[in-house]
Every structure is written in structure tokens, then in C-alpha cells.
Write a protein that binds this DNA or RNA. Structure first.
Lengths: 109, 109
DNA sequence: CGTGTAAGGAATTCTGACACG
DNA sequence: CGTGTAAGGAATTCTGACACG
């Protein structure tokens, strides 16, 4: 479990390359950050750094924008998704707890 | 089989960030390219772009350099590894062919 | 051989702002 | 609201070269 698993989430891509990758203008990418749709890291001197995951999210945003969805709605939908995801996880964890209670607890590796 | 699988090999990281990631100086990274140890892509206007795989390779190179191994030897060893890998693949392919010949050919999905 | 550095230029990135709508 | 653009400055990157060793 080194950094092998984090190619997708490690923030190492500069905004210019993200622009090429997504087809969005640098201005647009910065604006979506201002609207809290995307959260890049920063280098020591303040340049933005994105992950592949961010790039995918931006492509998602671009698709929704083309459908005319406003940034405000995109953010709302995103937050709902996150909450749903969170709920799913909690439910799974609780379910697992019940199973353990019924059939005895086995350590998970 | 979209670009999902290529986070590791897609060349999107600029030399400055590679420098931070590897601890090597920009000068060293460029030099290793000159010595044919590493092969970055270029942006339209000529800036180098590296993949996570390249970053790992550079960390490997750095380790060998610290042991005093010369760039020339590192390249030689690398070529040998590639050849060995190539041989392994060919051998596997041939073995599979024999099995198919004996037990009938099943399509692989 | 491997790496640092100064040199000059080109391209990048940053922020805050004005423009249009 | 979403995006373009000009502005000014700072940091990045590039190449070829000299230095040291």
C-alpha cells in the first residue's frame, strides 16, 4: 500500500495540461474552482495541481454545462451524490455488524 | 478499455513536479534523458511531460546512481531487463499455443 | 562523467478587474 | 451567470555553454 494505488488521486497535473486533457479553457477551470466544484492542491508558490480524478470530474462538469446545467446545480447534485455514497457505506458497515453478531466475528484483513 | 487503465503511463507531469516527486534536480532529470534513460513526451511548445511510470523509473535510477552505478550501466541493465521480459512473453505465448493444440482451442475473452 | 550555474528568451500561471449579457 | 481578455508580475521551462573534476 505505497503510493502505487494513488495514481488516480495524486495531484500532479498543472492547469495547462488539464486544459488540454479536458478541452476546457484555463479560465473555465479556475471558475469552477471558484464555484466550489473542484479542489486542486497548490504548489509551494501557488500553482494549481490536479489529479486524474479531478480531470474526470471536470469532464463530467463540462458535459453537464453543455446540457445547460448551472454550476450551482452541479454542486448541489454532487453533494447529494456524496451523501448517498456516505449512506451506502454506513449501511454496509452496519449490515456487516449484524452478520458478525449472528455468525460470529471474523477479523477482516 | 478507455483511458481508465492509463493513469500510470499517461504523460502529464511537468519536470518541476517530477523533481519534487523524485528529489532529483531538474538538471539531473534532463541529463538522464540525454543519456537515454528516460523518454518524456513533449507539449506543443516543447515542455517535457512525464508519467507516474517515468517517476518510478527515475526513483530507480536515483537509487542506482547513489550506489555509484554509471548511467551507461543503468541503460545496459535496463535493456537486458526489457529483453528478458520480451522473452518471457514470447515463451508464454508459445506455451499457450501448445496447450491449445493439445486440448483444443478455446477463444480467450 | 555527472551536475551546478548564469544567460536570454519564450511560455505559463497567478490575481483582480472590466466587459458582455 | 459564465466566460473572454488585457495587465503586470513572478515562476517555469528550454537550450547551449562553461565550470569542475
Amino acid at each position: 500500500m505505497a503510493d502505487e494505488s494513488s495514481y488516480k488521486t495524486k495531484k500532479v497535473i498543472t492547469i495547462g495540461i488539464v486544459s488540454e486533457l479536458t478541452g476546457l479553457s484555463v479560465r473555465q477551470i479556475r471558475y469552477y474552482e471558484e464555484r466550489k466544484l473542484i479542489f486542486p492542491d497548490r504548489t509551494e508558490r501557488g500553482s494549481r495541481k490536479y489529479s486524474f480524478e479531478d480531470v474526470e470530474r471536470l469532464m463530467d462538469i463540462a458535459a453537464k454545462r453543455e446540457e445547460g446545467v448551472q454550476t450551482h446545480e452541479i454542486r448541489q447534485d454532487y453533494l447529494r451524490e456524496l451523501r448517498k455514497e456516505e449512506y451506502r457505506k454506513v449501511r454496509q458497515t452496519m449490515l456487516r455488524g449484524q452478520i458478525n453478531a449472528q455468525f460470529g466475528i471474523r477479523k477482516e484483513k
